[in-house]
């Protein structure tokens, strides 16, 4: 019987330079180094990445979907943050 289970890590992969790292999934590993090696084998067997980030899952703080309203609704009625809010004559070009 294992004395202690390997912790869970979240894996982020940059598909190619110029793109951001994107969440690919998770895996178990004893430490960060092993998480990197395992991520290489699990998530990039076909050149899916040029760079990998691993972070232990317990270190991620996530917003709660129940707070969706207070978090995101304030942005919904601010139409003046979008270019189409502003009335300009059709003759104006390049704007």
């Amino acid at each position: 019987m294992a004395t202690k289970d390997w912790p869970l890590w979240e894996i982020f992969v940059r598909s190619k330079n110029g793109l951001e790292h994107r969440h690919f999934g998770s895996l178990h590993a004893a430490d960060a180094e092993m998480a990197l090696e395992n991520a290489r084998d699990v998530y990039t067997r076909r050149n899916e990445g040029v760079s990998i980030w691993v972070v232990e899952s317990k270190h991620i703080t996530a917003s709660n979907p129940e707070n969706y309203g207070e978090l995101f609704e304030p942005a919904q009625d601010k139409v003046y943050r979008h270019p189409t809010f502003y009335d300009l004559p059709d003759e104006v070009k390049h704007m």
Binding site: M1, A2, T3, K4, W6, A30, D31, M34
Partner: peptide, 16 residues
């Protein structure tokens, strides 16, 4: 494989 998993964990803790 249990001893391998245990050894890896023990090694990780030692390094930490």
């Amino acid at each position: 494989g249990a001893w391998v998993r245990d050894a890896a964990m023990a090694y990780a803790e030692k390094k930490e």
